[in-house]
Amino acid sequence: MTWAAFTSEWTKLRRPTLFFSTFLGLALAASLFVILVFSQATTHGGIVTLHQLAQPNGLVIGVARAAMLLGVVAFGIAASQVASEYSLGTLRQLLVRQPRRAVLLAGKMLGVITFLVLALCFAAVVALIVAVVAAHSRGVSTSAWFTGTGLGDLFRELGDLALAVVGYSVLGMALGQFVRSAVFAVIIGFAWLIAVENIVVRIVPSTQSWLPGQSILAVASGGGEGVSYGHGLVLGAVYLIAAIAAATLVFLRSDITA
């Protein structure tokens, strides 16, 4: 049943406007980021040095800084996929064909998450190709990247980013479920992730290890300043489970009058 809801959701996600703008948009953003890193790198400085780029983990350096952008995209798309069912009024049709609301929500969540994780993988592949080309043009050796250590780092970082995408998507969908408006969900979500958490952390630094956005960022960057990877993973999981539980409960009890 969840599979049916999942394939149904993918029928919507596959629409060319959303599909191409997400996949190509993320790939383009990742490629530009790689080009920026390589073009600014010098022997002494830049975002990273040319020497650092030639290391086994050269590929993933700086990627964590792009995690925020990825989060914004994932959060926005996830929130609007849920909220637009309310604003378009399509939810009432969906619920006649699948009255078990938890099943509908689970199928939707799985659909949106796979969509965004696939978009991430596609962007990673494109960025890798761009990185190899950029490395050649800057005379950076790529041999260390494709060693066991290098590939291990690459896949670990990709896995962490995928976890972060899952986190941002779930938060986005939960908020979309509460707010029922794509625009408001995105505004609230962005304001929270980009502004509120940062301000709170500036004022009370000790809160950093307890905020949802910070915990996801810590996972995305494989452990950041202030929040360890393990702590971020556990705390993030707690937040996500709470978000899913709350969204499901609200959905199960609400009257659909949209």
């Binding site: 049916a4 149904s8 959303l18 399509t90």
Partner: peptide, 17 residues
């Protein structure tokens, strides 16, 4: 219905579900 999907795709969304 979903404005960006065709009529047929809109019905497929419901049929699959």
């Amino acid at each position: 219905f979903y404005p960006q999907l065709s009529g047929r795709e809109n019905l497929k969304v419901l049929a699959r579900l």
